[in-house]
Amino acid sequence: MIQLIYMHLFYGRRRLVYIGFYALMIISIIFFGDVNEPKYVQILDRVYYQEYFNLTMKTFLPMIFSIFMLMLVMDHDQKAFHMIESYHSRFFVYSYKFISYVTITAFSLILLYLFMIGFMTLLTPYYELNMDLCHLFIHLYLDSIILISCFMILIKKEHLNRGFIVILIFLIYPMITESMNSKIMFYILPIYTLEIQANWLVYAYKICYICSGFLLGLLINERKQIYG
């Protein structure tokens, strides 16, 4: 089933669009790494450059990756899957779609992380492996799965624009929570903000949130009326 979903997702020119967008993300990372600055300046201000790069990534990556996720999941409600839904079940198709998206996201993020480490280590003298960005990527992964749940619940073939509304909320939300500095806001929608301190507790909360989102999605999908 996963193979068929991949066929539906990555056919022909669509594959090129994904690769192009992915390449754009990598180029942006290199661009933010200030690789053109003189090497001795980078070595002298090692801590500054490292902190600056981390901060930029923390702001930039959630934004760009959420758009990548939208591109990926936007077309999940394809009519071609109805033929399989009648043969197996809606539960079967929904679960496999979810698993496929989660797997693709994992691979995309791992690759992105490896590219980032590779390029930054090769091109800059200041970059050192640090847990800060590792935590960012774990948050990004969990946030992406939350996004997948939201997209799969809200986006239908005839309502693709809902995806952009989710993305808008996703992008504006951290700004609002930053200014309000309220924990309640984080409990309502636990997406990454710069203020996050207790990582492991937040991961656990996000995983609970993801499980609830998946179950809610299953429930809504079972009761969905399929026309056309």
Binding site: M7, R13, Y87
Partner: peptide, 29 residues
Amino acid sequence: LKISYLPEHVLLPPFIKVKAYIEGFAKVK
């Protein structure tokens, strides 16, 4: 029941070889 269904309008993903798609579909079924 396992119901095989042919919809009124068959919508399949473009840019995939027919043979590959049939093979993929057969694996799912």
